[in-house]
Every structure is written in structure tokens, then in C-alpha cells.
Design a protein around this nucleic acid. Structure first.
Lengths: 183, 183
DNA sequence: GTCTATAGGAAGATAGAC
DNA sequence: GTCTATCTTCCTATAGAC
């Protein structure tokens, strides 16, 4: 198994069970490796595993979301692409978001907070730029960009709370036009 | 200290540290009681403490949100009142939501899932009814009601992730008019 | 790299004195 | 009701053989 696959499994485990809930026995079972092996790959222990998982998600953001948003395509197309990528990454709403899980689960002064803050900020900023390109006023573009990320996060919470991914899927469908609407 | 105060402290502890993160030592410190005393009040242990905390939040929903929404006041006023209650309950976005913390932290087949699902469903349903009263078509009313709860949850996630409560406060301000808008 | 074995501590929970 | 003491289980982490 490649290191990429391994990290991907760690991501899945952490977003399913949370940081505290994902014990080493749990991580060992999920990955199929012994507890000891996990320390071989990640000498820093559980904290390093979570940081690597977080870095993996942040790399996904950079490659699959931010880069396309910064391309020279049309705003509507870029937002459309973004929603498709998000929909795929979160498996139509079945997966929860590692940022949210770690942000809600831990106290505020933790290891991961900076990485999470950076990722969310970058995402919002990138969307805001796209909305400005479409002709929206700066302040409104920023509000709408925050609203976009906020709705994605909320839809993922609702998916788990209601055990229903429909609100997430509808949000992904309507988001591009809602963001670009005049008024 | 009254039982109400005690339970309120448990709610605070669970939504701050999560279910796994809130150890008995932690709960003992937060409440000022010894670990043993907690078992005196809640023989069912930590699981019972979390269930009682959840029941407390659900009672808040019923009293402070659902009851007013079902009153005979004007739709716009009822939604306005709801946002004020939510804003106060979550301390302008500083507190996170126990439903979200428990829904994201645990695996899906857990003890609390039914209570959370019930609460979110009731809330959405109550908002949908209000929006219908205001003249919105049934299906659209339901979508917007889901969107309302979803945005509140997302705003609370963002507040913790970005360490910034502004998106939450703006959401609370604009939500009533956004929900009622014609289009 | 992958195992067994195990250390050291914190977890949830209980017994029983006062 | 509130304490001290204690039990068992599970946790993270390490040592060391193969």
C-alpha cells in the first residue's frame, strides 16, 4: 500500500471518529497495519498522523479547488467545477469534513487550528476573487464567499445530523447560481 | 448549585471538548464536583451525562424556538425572534452547537443520533410552516427552512475554524429577510 | 518493515467510610 | 451528599526480536 493510500485512510478514520475517538487501535484496524507500524511511519505518534491527514486535505484544496478557481475560465464554470469537486470529495455528503471535525472537537488552542484557519481563509478568498471577476462589488463578493463555505460546512453537518444527504446535494446544485445572482 | 446549573455546565463542557474529549476528570473540574459525585447524580455515567445535556438543549429548542415559531405572531417577527434567541444561546457565535459536536464526533449508530435527528427535523419543520404562512410555496418553504438551519450550523463551524464570529453574526442579521425574499 | 511484549498512565466506573 | 481508595480496561508509546 502506498503512503498516499495510507494517509487517505487516516483522513477517513479521523473524520469519522474525530481526533479523540480515533484511538491507535482504531487507526491500526482501519489501515490494516499494526499499532507499532504506525509509529514506524509516523514517529510523532497520533498528533503527527492527524497533522499529515490535515495536510493531505489541504493539498486537495490547493490542487482541486484553489488552482481551478484561479484559472482563466469563466466564473460560472469555475464555481460549477468547484461544486463538482466538493461533491466528489465528500461523497455526495456521506463524508464529513476533517476541518469541521477537528475544529469542533478540540479546544481552541490546539495544534491544528492554524492549518484549518489557513485553509478556510484561502478558500473564501479564492471564491471572493471569482465573484469579483463576475462583477460583484468587493464587500458583497466577500460576504457571499463566506456564505458559500459556510453552507457547505452546514450541509455536511446536516447530512450527519439528519442522516440525509439531500440538503447537501441540493446546496451543491444551486450554489453557483445563488452566488452569482444579481440583486 | 441547582441541577439546572449543573446540567448547563455539562452542556458547555461537551460542546467545548466533544464527547470523547470531555473526560470524567474534565467534567469533574468544570462542574467543581468530584468524579464520584457525578456518578451520584448520573448513575449511568458519562453516557447519561451527555444524554441529559442533549435533553437540556432539546428543551431549549422546544421552549425558546419552536413554541414562539408556532405562535400567532407575524412570520417576519417570529423569524426575527428566532435569530435573536439563537444569537443569545450561542453567545454571538462563541459557543459551538452540541448537536453538531456529537453528530460529527461519533460514528453514526450511536446513542444520541435519534435525539439530534428529532431536534433538527422539528426545527426545520417549524421554520417551513412559518415560511408557508408567509405565502411561500410548500416545497420552496421546506428548502429554505433546511437552508436556514444549515447556515446556522455552518456559521458556527466557521466561527470556530476561522476564529471569527462575524460570519455568524451577519448570518443572524440577514437570515429573516433572506428567508422571506420573493424571487 | 513487521511482529510480540510491555511499560506507564489515564480512562470510566465502583466500594465503602463519613 | 461528599470524600479516599481502588479496580479494570484502554490508551499512547517504546523496546527489541526477526
Amino acid at each position: 500500500m502506498s503512503r498516499e493510500q495510507l494517509i487517505s485512510q487516516l483522513v477517513d478514520a479521523f473524520r469519522l471518529y474525530g481526533y479523540e475517538g480515533a484511538s491507535l487501535s482504531c487507526l491500526a484496524k482501519v489501515t490494516g497495519l499494526g499499532k507499532t507500524n504506525l509509529y514506524h511511519y509516523f514517529p510523532g505518534g497520533k498528533a503527527e498522523m492527524a497533522e499529515v491527514a490535515l495536510a493531505h486535505v489541504n493539498a486537495w484544496l490547493e490542487d482541486s479547488i484553489l488552482k481551478p478557481l484561479r484559472s482563466r475560465a469563466k466564473p460560472a464554470d469555475k464555481l460549477q467545477k468547484m461544486c463538482e469537486q466538493v461533491n466528489a470529495f465528500f461523497k455526495q455528503g456521506q463524508n464529513s469534513c476533517l476541518w469541521a471535525v477537528l475544529a469542533l472537537g478540540q479546544s481552541s488552542d490546539d495544534l491544528f487550528h492554524q492549518q484549518i484557519k489557513w485553509a478556510l481563509s484561502q478558500w473564501i478568498e479564492a471564491i471572493a476573487v471569482v465573484l469579483e471577476q463576475s462583477g460583484l462589488e468587493t464587500q458583497l463578493a466577500r460576504y457571499r464567499a463566506e456564505d458559500a463555505v459556510l453552507r457547505i460546512q452546514g450541509a455536511l453537518v446536516l447530512a450527519r445530523g439528519l442522516d440525509d444527504t439531500m440538503p447537501f446535494q441540493r446546496t451543491m446544485q444551486t450554489l453557483p447560481t445563488e452566488l452569482l445572482r444579481r440583486e
